[in-house]
Simulated scan of single mutants.
Amino acid sequence: MRIIVTGGAGFIGSAVCRAIVHGTRHRAVNIDKLTYAATPQSTAGLAGSPRYRFCRLDIGDRAGLQAVLADEEPDAIIHLAAESHVDRSIEGPAAFIETNIVGTYTLLEAARRYWSGLPDTRRERFRVLHVSTDEVYGSLGPDDGTFTEASPYDPSSPYSASKASADHLAMAWQRTYGLPVIVSNCSNNYGPFQFPEKLVPVTIVNALDGMDLPIYGRGDNVRDWLHVEDHARALLALLARGRPGERYTVGGRAERRNIDVVRAVCGLLDRLAPRSGGGSYLEQIAFVADRAGHDFRYAIDPGRIEDEIGWRALEDFSSGLERTVRWYLDNEAWWRPLRQAGAAGRGKAAAPVGRAAGAAGVVAQGDVA
């Protein structure tokens, strides 16, 4: 198969590209605009492969999309390109509307035009997998069970509202035009190559830099954690065996409070990279004012993808978190330039312990990609 991956230089997209090239016989075509959160180094190891191509392109560029589709003649599209940081969506929602909603519309239209011109046998095989988030479902209480494919949409932030809009567009293009679309909604991802502004990586790099480890409220908000490599496997399984017109929720069955995730990271760092001055990284935890519209709990029931598709999350959260911490310890050359660029972009150096949250700003503890 020839698979286009939009947002393939992002955290989840790069994991999908690596999974395609290293784990299958398929060809990956990475389309990415290269915004601030894109890291081309995440796919640097694929550059020499004849089964990988990178195209710097905005998904809002319909003519550009149509040219790539005509040139590559793909069998599938995995749509991951999105603005994904909740805090940034609160501060400046316009980019989220433009990319997540208008960009998705533009991609769907380009895909529909391409798909409608395929021979019948190829039209039957073609798929568009639209990748979304559990945040579209809003917030769960402590005793509210889990999100499923039947959960009603109730987004709280500009980010989740833009993703919910994109989900509805994708399903409408399937129902109205017959475009073979599958929608997936995943829980919080973690793992290697994650841009250092999300909870796990920002905790690691802030700790190593001797900075505050900021936690919203009292850290009681709950997230369901999914290793990014398990997620990449899930998406390829859905592409192969998912049914057009259906939704699938993808989770790792690993609910944790934010404070417990941070404490676990600190415990691993205490063991693997002790502080030079002694003491525990726990001493760097700093509770900050809660953000507006902060959902209390997310939890996914992945029963449908497990039973119907045969996918299971393979990575236990404890072992996956240790793998992730070790990766950041071993790959400072990857994250350090991103850290420095972030500080330079705000016109100041990274703050030491006792000052504000640091080079990536206050960590967003709910967004996915």
Rank of each mutant, 00 (worst) to 15 (best):
R275P: 01
A237S: 15
V16G: 01
H168L: 15
E306C: 13
I97T: 11
S151L: 10
F126D: 11
V368I: 15
G210L: 12
H294M: 13
P274G: 06
A47F: 09
L282D: 14
R88N: 11
I97R: 07
G278R: 07
D58W: 06
L34S: 01
R51G: 07
P119A: 10
G277S: 05
L321S: 06
D154Q: 10
A70D: 12
H294C: 00
D167L: 02
Y137R: 01
A273Q: 11
R27C: 13
A349V: 10
V16Y: 08
A82Q: 08
S157Q: 09
I259N: 00
A110N: 04
P93D: 11
T146H: 00
I97S: 01
V102E: 04
H231W: 12
G10E: 08
I101N: 00
F317L: 13
Y298V: 08
A364K: 01
V288E: 11
E306R: 12
A364T: 14
N206G: 04
I309M: 00
R304T: 13
L107R: 09
G366Y: 08
D154T: 01
R62S: 04
T324I: 04
Q365M: 14
Y328A: 04
E135D: 09
F296H: 07
A360H: 10
R346E: 12
G117T: 09
A273P: 02
V353C: 07
D260V: 05
V262L: 05
V261K: 04
R297D: 06
S162E: 09
E72M: 07
L329R: 05
R275D: 05
P337F: 09
E322W: 05
Y190V: 07
R326V: 09
R241C: 03
C55G: 00
P337E: 05
I215V: 15
Q66E: 15
R257L: 13
F11L: 05
G92Y: 01
S156Q: 13
T24S: 13
G245N: 06
A364M: 06
L169C: 11
S187I: 02
A299S: 13
D307V: 08
P155W: 00
G361Y: 07
I97D: 09
G92T: 11
D295Q: 02
R123H: 12
F195D: 05
I97K: 00
V288H: 01
A47Q: 04
P93C: 08
A110Q: 10
V131N: 03
G303L: 07
D330P: 02
A356I: 06
F11Y: 08
P196T: 08
W327D: 00
T249K: 01
R175Y: 10
N100I: 11
Y190E: 04
A273C: 15
V181L: 10
I300S: 01
G64V: 04
H22D: 14
T43S: 10
A94R: 15
S89W: 11
V5W: 05
A28V: 09
P302C: 10
L129P: 04
D224F: 02
N188L: 15
P74K: 08
A172K: 03
G138K: 03
T176R: 14
L46P: 06
R122Q: 15
Y281M: 08
A237R: 11
K163E: 07
D220S: 14
G361T: 05
F287W: 03
E109S: 14
E91R: 14
T35W: 09
A333C: 07
Y114V: 11
